[in-house]
């Protein structure tokens, strides 16, 4: 696929999402949540490129969501909350990253998981500050000074999420093609060689890790502003598992994967929950199993295979 084709496809996708949100108003919320999560999944994609699976990436989503919630009590302005939350996430990502990039594979995954669980339990236990499992409500917000209410709020946040997804999608696409991104893939296959090329593998991984935290931070801020309620469950390890789930569901081979995966995931969840209230996890789990067993390239890979088959025929 050429660059122009990819760009057109991305824009077409954005228009399609907005049209869907216009046709089915209650989907606006679902799609905004999906796009917010896809921002975090871009980071999972980067780390997967290096062969590393983080089972604690929801830490950065949750951290940004809580940062947004606390900041909103002082300044309820969306255009301030977004960068503040994203930068907080990136800074914590830098500090944590300096520690975790020394580890690989299972230990990398487990350390991330442990750190996210530490954060989860702090959120849950320090009731006086965070209201524990009840979570925190965000006050009414403004966007560039205009109060966010009703329809307007839904559209503003959805469009913000679409713009962020397009922007970060393009950034990740460029990053992966650069020497930094290609070296990232080198960590997966032959880290020793990187070192003997004089390339500091840890710093290559750290850069990707911080970028991943930053993107998850943007996702967390959008999520908090959309749901207006943040709870410790955002940081629980199963939430991180969901992010990896979405990456694989959408397909880890392309920057379209995270968005396709997140939208498919949230839609399946909503419809499954409406269909059988107590078994939506069962349905999602089964979908994931089927995808892994029969379409390991994810939905993106499946779509691509269908397209190329039609071309041949």
């Amino acid at each position: 696929m050429t660059r122009t084709q990819e760009l057109l496809l991305a824009l077409l996708g954005a228009v399609l999402l907005l049209a869907l949100a216009w046709a089915v108003p209650w989907l606006r919320f679902v799609l905004t949540v999906a796009l917010a999560k896809s921002l975090a999944v871009f980071g999972i994609l980067l780390l997967l490129r290096a062969g590393q699976v983080s089972f604690g990436h929801a830490l950065y989503l949750a951290l940004a969501a809580y940062t947004a919630a606390f900041t909103a009590m002082l300044i309820p302005e969306a255009l301030i909350l977004l960068p503040v939350a994203a930068i907080a996430s990136a800074l914590v990502g830098l500090v944590v990253g300096l520690f975790v990039v020394r580890y690989r594979e299972i230990f990398f995954g487990m350390l991330n998981l442990a750190l996210s669980m530490v954060f989860y339990s702090l959120l849950e236990k320090f009731y006086s500050i965070t209201h524990g499992t009840d979570g925190m409500r965000l006050p009414p917000l403004r966007f560039a000074g205009i109060p966010l209410e009703g329809e307007f709020q839904g559209w503003v946040l959805l469009i913000l999420a679409v713009v962020l997804a397009l922007g970060f999608g393009a950034l990740v696409r460029i990053y992966l093609a650069s020497p930094m991104g290609q070296a990232l893939a080198g960590i997966k296959t032959r880290e020793t060689r990187l070192e003997f090329l004089g390339v500091p593998a840890r710093r290559v991984l750290l850069a990707a890790y911080v970028l991943a935290a930053l993107m998850a931070g943007c996702g967390g801020a959008v999520l908090a502003m959309t749901t207006r309620l943040v709870t410790p469950a955002l940081a629980y390890w199963t939430a991180s598992g969901e992010l990896v789930f979405i990456a694989i569901l959408g397909g880890a081979g392309s920057v379209f994967g995270p968005v396709i995966g997140a939208v498919a995931f949230e839609l399946t969840r909503v419809y499954a929950a409406a269909l059988v209230a107590d078994a939506w996890q069962l349905i999602l789990g089964s979908v994931l199993l089927l995808v892994i067993l029969f379409a390991p390239g994810g939905l993106w890979g499946m779509g691509k295979a269908l397209l190329s088959r039609r071309k041949i025929a």
Binding site: G241, V244, W280, Q281, G285, S286, L289
Partner: peptide, 12 residues
């Protein structure tokens, strides 16, 4: 991820 899918199914 296969074991994660299995986990989700078994939980429900």
């Amino acid at each position: 991820l296969v074991t994660f899918a299995l986990f989700m199914i078994l939980e429900d």
